[in-house]
């Protein structure tokens, strides 16, 4: 390593310090899920498992969780297809408007959620006359998830170049066979990284969702939003959040197993 000992120690210290700050509110969430006080008074006077019990019996939370999983899976599936297509299309080719295409793909995530939200809501309800539903949430989520897949695919293709596929074609394989046997395996971990990010983005999205969901469709963030502001439900929400943090280990672990390298799998590092 070419960084001096002092610098490395300083970096470590900053990292630890920031992580402590990052985890303090999360620890507080877990602590408050046991706090008897319905409005999370500090310091807690006493502890109870009552909220955990209530959360387990909350069918609203459970169905909202499944709605969120459903939406995130569907949006991710769409994003995978469209993002991969766009990534493949833009490889190596230098055509007029290439930058415009990347910009258009980037735009839904670069513009604030509230803009995307009201634009889509307006398009659905007044322009197209479609009633808001689970389907409209999925469309909205897929729109801003495409970029995560696209970026990962494009970066991977750029790094690996086209030699392998060229060789495959030279050996007589058709474009589809080449894609199945060469390109896809090459892209697999990049796709996984993109899919995971896309799933996460969709899962915790609230702003765009607020505008594109009909009040009957409740994703988990919407459920949390509605229940956080009811005095008897606040602590139950803390339980749900605590559970989410604990369960987030699962997708992260899966990504690590499937992609070989966690860092690459999760960040699309290349």
């Amino acid at each position: 390593m070419s960084l001096s000992r002092g610098l490395r120690a300083a970096l470590l210290a900053i990292t630890v310090l920031v992580l402590v700050v990052v985890y303090t509110p999360l620890a507080l969430v877990v602590l408050n899920s046991f706090n008897v006080d319905r409005t999370f008074a500090w310091p807690p006077k006493d502890f109870t498992t009552h909220w955990w019990d209530a959360a387990i019996h909350s069918t609203g939370a459970r169905s909202a969780l499944w709605t969120s999983v459903e939406v995130a899976l569907a949006a991710t599936a769409v994003a995978l297809v469209l993002g991969t297509l766009a990534g493949l299309a833009l490889r190596k080719t230098r055509f007029f408007g290439r930058n415009v295409v990347s910009l258009v793909i980037l735009l839904p995530i670069a513009l604030p959620g509230i803009v995307t939200g009201i634009a889509l809501s307006n398009a659905f309800t007044t322009v197209l006359g479609v009633e808001l539903s689970l389907f409209t949430i999925i469309i909205a989520h897929a729109t801003f998830c495409i970029v995560t897949v696209f970026n990962n695919v494009q970066a991977r293709l750029q790094r690996l170049g086209g030699n392998m596929e060229q060789a495959s074609m030279d050996l007589g394989a058709g474009p589809l066979t080449t894609f199945r046997l060469v390109t896809f395996p090459m892209l697999r971990s990049a796709l996984l990284a993109g899919a995971l990010l896309s799933f996460g983005l969709s899962f915790d999205e609230i702003v765009v969702t607020t505008f594109t969901a009909s009040p009957r469709d409740q994703t988990l963030p919407l459920w949390i939003f509605q229940n956080l502001f009811r005095p008897n439900q606040g602590p139950v929400v803390n339980v749900v959040a605590a559970v989410l943090v604990l369960f987030s280990v699962i997708p992260i672990y899966l990504a690590q197993r499937l992609s070989g390298s966690t860092a690459e799998g999760l960040t699309g590092a290349r």
Binding site: D37, T39, F40, A41, W42, L228, F229, R230, P231, G234
Partner: peptide, 11 residues
């Protein structure tokens, strides 16, 4: 909303 105010008065 309820919680904001209740919390603010409690603290």
């Amino acid at each position: 909303d309820y919680l904001t105010e209740v919390q603010a008065f409690t603290t």
